[in-house]
Amino acid sequence: MSDTTSRALTLLNLLQTHRHWTGPELAGRLGVTERTIRRDVDRLRELGYRVESVPGALGGYRLEGGTAVPPLLLTDAEAVAIAIGLRVAATQRLIDGPETTLSALAKVEQVLPARLRTQVNALASAVQPAGLGQGTAVSTEVLAELAMACRDRERVRFRYVSAAGTQTERRVEPHTLAPADRHWYLLCFDLDRDDWRTFRVDRLSEVFHTRLTFQRRDLSPEMVADFLQVARAWQRQPVETEVVMELPLDQVKEHFGHWAQGASEESADRTRWPVGGADFRETMYGMSWIPAGVGYRTDLAEPARSELREVLVRMLAALDAPAPEPARAKDRPVG
């Protein structure tokens, strides 16, 4: 870096740390003449910094807001504070539009030296804003890593623990990070499953950057919203079961679309599909969407199994019984 550039950056740092500087003060700090200070101020103005100058004995220089945001120079302590603040804002959804927070977080995290990132990780884990966030804790470091991968279109690997406690290693192309209800979700293309998948970030760890970029696959905002809706519905339910239906996996995916997430091949012509709900009625509703004419079995446990059977027996009896007499029309008042 040339002496001129280095001096201009030092001048910028001084202007950012003090509201007002006189010409002699700046010249003394930098060990140059006031004429040199004026030339350096002109260079900063050319770069987009709005430096106000006031002539006279009480005059001097000060940095003002302009029409655009120029680069900022930050001390180590300031960079750490901003990174922690952005991590908290991201995990607590304090700012409308998560993309803005995550984009800013990725930019700051990218340029942090390793020693400062270690400090940020240690401090951020201890920051718990009072009265905010009732969801599962999310690793701010993992969130920052995924934000950078989404922005840079970089393939990543990570470990994931499912709701059932099964741990797997996934290779994905990250597409979107989004909050929904009380959780953060990563929407990505799973390279091993050759399909879109949605992962809860609080169950994700050990993000590894492959440095391999990819061509972003097109997803409309409506499709992203659909994937997130499915992910929200996939939270562990009070009544859960699995059905094995007499239908190949590819046909299940064609019929159910995004709702086929979690379906797996039982055999060449059978598919295992998890279903759940708040009670046996919601579970029954889920099973009712299995295509007409397709046989299936279920492992629905007691007492939901007996409750569902009792309801179905009465329902079938009602359908087999003679239809009730039509309701009589009420006598109309004579006018």
Rank of each mutant, 00 (worst) to 15 (best):
A144L: 00
A77E: 12
S125R: 09
M148R: 15
A144K: 02
T166G: 00
L63D: 02
A114N: 10
G65V: 01
A106H: 05
S125V: 02
V41L: 08
V161M: 10
A164Q: 15
T101Y: 04
R117I: 02
S103R: 14
A68Y: 02
R45H: 02
D40R: 00
T140V: 07
G165P: 09
A122I: 06
E78S: 10
H175E: 14
R171Q: 13
I84R: 12
G135V: 04
Y160F: 14
N121M: 03
T136S: 11
V172F: 06
A180S: 11
R182C: 07
R159D: 15
T176W: 10
R155H: 09
R93M: 02
V111M: 08
E52S: 09
V54T: 15
L105M: 13
A163I: 13
P71S: 08
V41A: 00
S139H: 09
D42N: 11
A106Q: 06
V54A: 05
V127W: 03
R93I: 03
G131A: 09
T118A: 11
L146V: 03
A122P: 01
L73Q: 05
A79V: 01
A147D: 09
R151G: 05
T101N: 02
G56I: 08
I84K: 08
A124S: 15
C150E: 08
G135A: 06
I95Y: 03
C150H: 05
T67M: 04
V69K: 06
T101C: 04
G65A: 12
E78V: 01
V161T: 15
Y160C: 01
E173D: 12
E145M: 12
E78I: 01
I82H: 03
G133A: 06
E78C: 05
V161R: 14
A83W: 08
L74N: 07
D96C: 02
E109Y: 08
T176A: 01
R151L: 12
R171V: 14
A126T: 13
V156F: 01
A163F: 06
V138E: 04
E141W: 04
K107Q: 10
R93K: 03
T168G: 11
L146N: 09
G60R: 15
I95E: 05
L132A: 08
A163S: 13
I84S: 00
V69R: 12
Q110I: 01
T136Y: 00
E169A: 14
Q119I: 07
I95K: 02
P55H: 13
E173K: 14
F158V: 00
V161A: 08
R151C: 03
A147E: 13
L102H: 12
C150G: 02
V51M: 02
V54R: 06
T67R: 13
R157W: 07
L73K: 07
H183V: 10
R50C: 06
A83Y: 09
V111R: 13
A89H: 09
L44K: 10
Y49D: 13
A149Y: 13
S125E: 12
R117D: 07
F158Q: 07
L102T: 15
T67W: 12
L146W: 04
V108C: 04
T101I: 06
L112H: 10
A79I: 01
A147R: 15
